[in-house]
Structure formats: C-alpha cells, structure tokens
Design a binder for these strands. Structure first.
Lengths: 200, 200
DNA sequence: ATTCAAGCTTGACAGTGTAAAGCTTCGCCG
DNA sequence: CGGCGAAGCTTTACACTGTCAAGCTTGAAT
C-alpha cells in the first residue's frame, strides 16, 4: 500500500497479534507457529527470523500479556476508593478481571513449561506485576513483608487458577465465595497505622 | 471389582505407568501417545483401544495422580501432632510435598486444557481432595465455611503454582516465605472453640 | 558498484494424533 | 463341537506440527 513511513505493522508484531488472536479463539492448543504465520500473511518459516521457535513466540506473547495484565491492575486500583484496603482489592480485581477475559494469556504467563522464564523482558514484566502487588500491600505492612505479600499473591493466584472466577469452583461444587471475603480474612480490618500485620 | 488374576499388568495399566514415567522424566512435553505405547511395548495405535485419544490417557493419568495426591495429604496429616492447626498444616505439607516431587502430574491435575474435567472419576478424585481440606478446616469453622476453605485452598495452591516450593519464587527474587507463616495469617492463633472465623 | 546481511520463501524431514482396515484370539452361545 | 463375534492389537495411511537448509530479493553500507 502506502510506502512512506512503515504504515503496516512489522511482521514480528503481526505474528504476535495473530498468535494472541489464536490463543483467544481456540485456547493454548490453537496457538501454532504455522497458523500464526498464515494469519499474519507470511510463510510458515518466517517466524523463525523473529523468534526462537514456538517457545520464542509464546514468550513474546507472554511479555505483551504482562503489559496488559499490569495495566488492568493499575486501572482497577486507580478506580477504587482511596483507602488501603480498597486499593489492594482493586489490584486483585484487575488481576481477576484479566484472568476471566484472557485465560489463554494467563495460562501462558503463569504455567511454566511453554515459556522462557529467563527472558529478561519476561522477568521485567513479572517483576513489575509483583511490584504493583507489593505496593498495594505496603500500607498494611509498613514496607516489604514477604509473608503478607505471599499470602495475598497466593490467594488471588490460587483463586484464579482454581477456577473460582467461574460459576463453580473445580473442586467443590458449590458457588465460589467472592474474593473480597478471602481478602478480608488475610487483611485484618484494623487501622493502618499499627504497623506490620505479621510479626517478622 | 477388577479381574482377579491377570499376572501381567494390563496394557491399559502399562500405558498409564509408561505415561507417568515419561511425565516425570521429561515434563508435559515428553508425554506422547506414541512414546507411551513404545515404552509399554505395544504399537502406536494400541492406546486408542483403551483411552479416548491423548486426552483420555492424560485424564487417566490425572485420575491416578489424584489418588497419590490424596494419599500424600492423608499421610502428612496423620503424622502431624493432634491439634487442629498442625493437622491442617500437615495436609498442606502433603499437598506441597506432592507438588515438589511430581510437578508434571500436578500440572495435569490442575491446569485445565489437557484433561477432561467432566470425567466422573476425575471429579471424584478432585472432590475427595477438597473434602480432605474441608475436613481439616472444619475445627476452625464449625462446619463448612466456603470463605475460610477457599482462602486456605487458594493459598496453598497459589503457593505451589507460583513456585514458592522452589528456592526462589518466580515473581519476586527473594527467598520465599515458609508456607506455615502464610497459613498462620489465615488461621488465627486462637482457641478452637470460639466458632467460625469468618462471620457469615 | 559491490558486498552483505536481514527478511522471506520453498522444500524437505522426523515426529505427532488419529482414523481405517485387517489380523489374531478368546469367550460364549447355538 | 462349531462357529462367530467382539475385543485387542498391528499395519498402513494422512494431515498437521516444529525445525532445518538452501535459495531469492532488497536495501543499506562500504
């Protein structure tokens, strides 16, 4: 088409976006190097020039997903009432909202085998996500408290992966409890100025 | 219920065990219908007579894994000191010990895409696991309390899937906190006879 | 003008899941 | 006793996957 400044996205970006679309439409099994290439309008071997195999494409997708993921947490946090609990709950809401809409991406981000977790960009995205959560926890702990952070992080992640975001959890058959109730259990309803919630 | 005197294991069992070995040795990617068949000493098409495709084999493996998983929780629980907290912590210890030793199986049991979660035997195993946890929670809640159970379940599951059982968590770079510390945060250190820990 | 590397294509290969067809073998019923 | 029918298994075949090797084009740098 036009040929002034590159108006068409780079092949690399086109492949990433095609892969994300495949993931959203057909789940992890539908994400295929050849299909992504076809959808991006290039030959089946083109991806090899941009990624280190399928693993590389999946890693690139996961990196982009972390950007969206972090944005979702920030958006929900900033839309919440300006209290420590509501801001932390907002972060978790963003976390869970992302999972609900993008299970394929979530699977790529947190389920180990198919992604290169040593990729520096991937680590940066994951570290940034943890930093957001940590910042949300800080008002309750007066700094970094691995126990408290670990409890909140585990709770929201477990809640998501156990399928509580869907109508019925995968283990029990009953309706799942709302996440805020779980969070209340970890975050004591008390003034914020009392210092760390878990001793040492 | 099964036939009494087949001295050599059935092909079906041989396939399941071959698959579990592959999973343990090479991770989820190494579990292949053809490889399992070869290791079991049958042709590559034999599995089709016992399972509904690869999905069926993976489901059968997950079902067997749940039996081991539940046994691990029971063993650790029964070896613990006879207090409500120690028994619940023991269940969680069993949970985490299983994950540490059998990440491939754990992945199959709890990561959705590759298994038929509607299989009745699979559901039975998962429900039994949840029942064990629920029983461990009961002394603190005076019965079934979805919020408390969900918090403990999410915490231990999140702790496991986030890689806290390894030296360093995948998100933060620091040493992970011990799980018991997280559990202490959810299970208040208080007499057991005060009734449910979460109101309503 | 030449070179050279990046980007892309075509072609090939081993490995995968799965379906179809044929072969054994054993239990059961006539 | 005879046959027969289904279960279990093998062989064959096919479409699809990831990956590699070789060639083609193109554009910028030397």
């Amino acid at each position: 088409m036009t040929q002034d400044t590159p108006p068409e996205v780079s092949t690399r970006d086109a492949l990433i976006e095609a892969g994300m679309a495949l993931l959203a439409e057909g789940g992890p099994e539908a994400l295929t190097l050849r299909r992504a290439a076809a959808r991006a309008g290039v030959s089946h071997a083109a991806p090899a020039h941009h990624f280190k195999g399928l693993r590389g494409l999946q890693t690139a997708i996961a990196i982009r997903a972390f950007a969206d993921f972090n944005r979702a947490m920030i958006t929900h946090r900033d839309a919440a009432a300006d209290t420590p609990f509501e801001r932390l709950a907002g972060i978790c809401d963003g976390y869970l909202a992302f999972v609900e809409g993008q299970e394929g991406l979530f699977h790529l981000m947190f389920t180990a085998a198919e992604v290169d977790r040593d990729d520096p960009d991937f680590r940066a995205g994951a570290t940034r996500a943890y930093g957001l959560l940590r910042a949300g926890c800080a008002p309750f702990t007066g700094g970094a408290d691995l126990v408290f952070e670990g409890a909140v992080w585990s709770a929201v992640h477990g809640y998501a992966t156990l399928g509580f975001t869907r109508k019925r959890g995968q283990a029990g058959g009953e309706n799942p409890p709302p996440f805020r109730a779980l969070l209340r259990l970890i975050v004591p309803d008390r003034p914020d100025h009392l210092g760390p919630v878990s001793a040492k």
